[in-house]
């Protein structure tokens, strides 16, 4: 995956988390983020997110990371 493509996905998911920050605690925010990604992201974008989680996912917002982990769990 090219760098800019990865950067864009990180930016997108963090933005989703920030804009739903008032949904509740981290778990509640992660639920909204996961629902959004599930509904709107392509198969490849999701798998790119999982790849990034595998690399440590350092730049992810905590709620975005939790959302990614849950989606990854569901996908297994």
């Amino acid at each position: 995956m090219s760098h800019s493509e990865q950067d864009r996905l990180i930016q997108m998911i963090n933005q989703i988390a920030l804009n739903n920050i008032s949904a509740g605690d981290e778990s509640a925010v992660a639920e909204v983020v996961a629902g959004h990604v599930k509904k709107f992201w392509s198969r490849r974008m999701k798998s790119q997110l999982f790849d990034y989680l595998g690399q440590g996912g350092e730049e992810l917002h905590p709620a975005a990371r939790l959302a990614g982990e849950r989606l990854q769990g569901d996908a297994r």
């Binding site: 090219s2 800019s4 493509e5 864009r8 709107f40 392509s42 198969r43 490849r44 974008m45 999701k46």
Partner: peptide, 19 residues
């Protein structure tokens, strides 16, 4: 396909990335 596809900006990024 039961998974969503790419949006226009995602298409551009994916094109530059080569897939």
């Amino acid at each position: 396909d039961h998974e969503p596809g790419l949006r226009i900006p995602n298409m551009f990024d994916a094109a530059i990335a080569g897939h």
